[in-house]
Nucleic acid binder design. Structure first.
Length: 719
DNA sequence: AGCACGCCGACT
DNA sequence: GTCGGCGTGCTC
């Protein structure tokens, strides 16, 4: 019972704060949430340890105001994971902890647990009220059949009887929704394919130990089925499964799929689309559930019986948080799996290069599913349309239009992929070459015809479409290039009568996916035009043509990850064509048909492409695997941003094996009125990099003047 | 990050 | 005479 506790607080200061425990000393185990005075404010913090005496001298320690005993203490495994993140991402421990907590538990207002369901207890099954207490008796009978909702009981005026049953210990309130009725037997899962069985033979005997398995499975090879079978074994052993997916909005059917497969199991979901109250409730419920399905933030949920982590579509960049604590849920999942001693399954048809390299080197185990589970499903033919020789009109070539016509005539569906929303990527003045610059960014304003506005897709700036060139007064401004709106318009004129649906951020509301799925499955759509949103999400079995327009920007981008992303997107779009018995066709318009990417794409051979990229980078004599830290600074002038980074570099400690590169403007140099520059630190050794930053970070905090924003971003990287 | 303290320009 | 601009410093 020491009088001093160390508390983690949500502040950028990378240290813990000592408080005198006061009268609460007995109740201050690590993980406990407390309210403390901090500066002129009060804050919620997390108790992380206790001391006999403080190392801070010269100040009188302040006292804990209150222990927040209306919520559970953070479990030791969550604290441990937070410590890893603080260390790995060089982010203050207190800030990590508060960032991972659901919203309602972060403030000191008393938390009233929402317990909307009344369920029978074991005691209530064995005994009950005397038959004379007829109302209570009837209610308990009903509870033995199924849990009852509080709102319903209130509506039928059973609240008092419910309270009486709870008081007697025959029933209790719970926050978990009742177990669903076992759904009618769905189609029985097909027997495991030989490949699935081979993977299971590797996975099932090693469930109790940490290992990372990279499941590389082509579209339709039954990755999900493999997850389900492993999860089944984990649940049977009484453990919990955590399933991470990139975006819940794109997979509305997935939760139903899981529930149907494991009737009677307790499910919880966790993602930022949930209302605050629901998110907090589900976070609390996660500790008791069997399967937790969620987006990146779910990786921090309390799971005391964790037995398996699945990261589906592991290459997806949504797993990386882009601000604040810049964590990658895929990497945190691996750290968590290691801490908990449980296997981690990374699954993808197009694994990220860093995961693939780990698998090649033997640190991860590679499980390949090469065959499509549905035997009839053939991989589509991929043809290139050479834009150097074939003319295009409004972004479409004659072969592309012919293919669309033919598909439409057969009553089949087509998918047109163009990674640019809006009508045209810029508005152009033919007399003075003005091209609609964004006043806040280094990007171009995109023409949106429907909304009659110019919009910046980087900072959100919007303005009316000018009636004449702002520079020279020329009234006849032209749209430059193609966006999805314009392609939709062009297609409508070439395919009269075709039912065309555009799928991009402008047309898709969060709940619209289910409706779209029904419309496409029901044959109410002939042509889908859209951005990368089309590459993810639903399977559309009657799509037999995929048309890919304008990929060339990413082919020779200086950002080599743009090429990797493009390959993954193209594989996914190609995988959408011809999944049924009908042969599919993929047409790609490009001015660079000789690019090696297409050679591998035409063979549907992602692995060969990945191996070639790895070999290429090896030839450049780059270390095969490295970690980089980007220090980003944003200031009102580029000079200020660069000045900060130059001083930062000057304060860098000498460390063997760590390279500090010059500060440069960031690729998107100007965002929302702030100039952005970055400094690159690289090392193949995590330990060296960690020691370097530990030494360096306090010095960074002393640099004055400070830019408007600065941050450290850690990324594993493969060369 | 917040939040206050602290000295210099244009306003009721 | 003061309202408020953002530079600087502090938070157990």
């Amino acid at each position: 019972m020491t009088p001093i506790v160390q508390v983690g607080l949500d502040t950028p200061l990378d240290r813990l704060f000592d408080y005198s425990a006061g009268e609460a000393a007995a109740d201050l185990a690590p993980g406990r949430l407390v309210e403390v005075p901090f500066g002129r404010t009060r804050q919620v913090g997390v108790v992380l340890g206790s001391l006999a005496e403080t190392a801070v001298d010269g100040i009188k320690l302040r006292t804990i105001l209150r222990v927040l005993d209306d919520r559970p203490a953070l479990a030791p495994e969550v604290l441990r994971l937070a410590r890893f993140c603080a260390d790995y991402y060089h982010y203050p421990l207190g800030a990590v902890l508060l960032a991972t907590l659901p919203p309602r538990l972060k403030n000191a207002t008393p938390y009233l647990a929402d317990t909307p369901w009344l369920v029978v207890t074991a005691l209530g099954r064995a005994e009950g009220p005397a038959p004379r207490a007829r109302a209570q008796h009837a209610l308990l009978e009903a509870l033995r059949e199924a849990p009852q909702a509080r709102a319903y009981l209130r509506a039928i005026k059973q609240g008092r009887h419910a309270a009486a049953l709870v008081a007697a210990g025959w029933a209790e309130w719970t926050r978990l929704p009742p177990e669903a009725e076992p759904p009618p037997e769905g189609p029985r899962p097909a027997p495991a394919t030989a490949e699935q069985q081979a993977a299971l033979d590797v996975l099932l005997p090693t469930l109790g130990e940490f290992a990372v398995h990279l499941v590389h499975g082509v579209t339709g090879s039954g990755k999900t089925e493999l997850y389900l079978r492993v999860i089944d074994a984990v649940l049977a052993a009484g453990r919990q499964a955590l399933v991470l997916i990139p975006e819940i909005a794109l997979t509305p059917q997935l939760e139903g799929h899981f529930r149907a497969r494991f009737p009677g199991r307790r499910f919880a979901t966790l993602h930022s689309g949930l209302a605050e109250a629901a998110r907090t409730e589900n976070w609390l419920a996660a500790a008791d559930c069997d399967v937790l399905l969620g987006t990146r933030l779910a990786v921090f949920a309390p799971l005391p019986r964790l037995g398996l982590i699945v990261v589906d579509e592991e290459h997806d960049t949504s797993f990386k948080q882009q601000d604040g604590l810049r964590y990658s849920a895929r990497d945190v999942a691996i750290a968590r799996g290691k801490q908990a001693g449980v296997p981690v399954l990374l699954g993808s048809a197009t694994p990220s290069l860093e995961s693939y390299a780990q698998a090649r080197s033997g640190r991860y185990r590679l499980l390949e599913l090469r065959q499509r589970a549905i035997a009839a499903a053939r991989l589509p033919e991929i043809e290139l349309v050479d834009l150097r020789h074939v003319p295009q009109e409004n972004g479409l070539t004659a072969p592309a239009l012919a293919a669309l016509h033919a598909t439409l005539a057969r009553g089949e569906q087509s998918l047109v992929f163009l990674n640019r929303r809006g009508y045209a990527p810029a508005l152009y003045c033919p007399s003075c070459a003005w091209v609609s610059p964004c006043p806040h960014c280094s990007a171009r304003l995109v023409l949106h015809r429907g909304a009659q506005r110019l919009k910046c897709h980087h900072c959100g700036f919007e303005t009316r479409i000018p009636s004449a060139c702002p520079d020279c007064g020329e009234p006849d401004l032209k749209p430059l290039g193609q966006g999805t709106q314009r392609v939709e318009e062009t297609l409508a004129t070439h395919l009269p009568g075709a039912r065309i649906r555009r799928i991009d951020r402008d047309t898709m509301r969060p709940r619209a996916w289910a409706e779209l799925g029904t419309a496409v499955h029901g044959g109410e759509v002939d042509v889908l035009v859209g951005t990368q949103m089309l590459a993810k999400g639903h399977d559309f079995p009657n799509v037999t043509l995929a048309l890919i327009l304008d990929t060339d920007g990413a082919l020779y981008s200086p950002d080599f990850r743009a090429t990797e992303r493009l390959f993954a997107q193209l594989m996914q779009v190609a995988g959408r064509a011809g999944r049924a018995e009908k042969p599919g066709r993929v047409l790609i318009q490009t001015a660079f048909p000789d690019h090696p990417l297409f050679r591998h794409l035409q063979r549907h051979d992602y692995a060969a492409y990945a191996r070639e990229l790895l070999a290429e980078r090896k030839q450049l004599e780059l270390p095969p695997y490295t970690r980089q830290i980007l220090v980003r600074a944003e200031a009102t002038t580029m000079d200020a941003a660069l000045a900060f980074l130059r001083r930062a570099a000057a304060l860098a400690p000498d460390a063997p094996g760590v390279s500090v590169f010059a500060a440069t403007p960031a690729p998107m140099a100007r965002v929302a009125k702030l100039e952005r520059a970055q400094l690159l630190i690289q090392s193949p050794s995590r330990a060296a990099l960690q020691a370097f930053v530990r030494d360096w970070r306090p010095r960074l905090e002393t640099i004055r003047p400070r830019p408007a924003r600065w941050s450290l971003d850690v990324d594993p990287l493969v060369f």
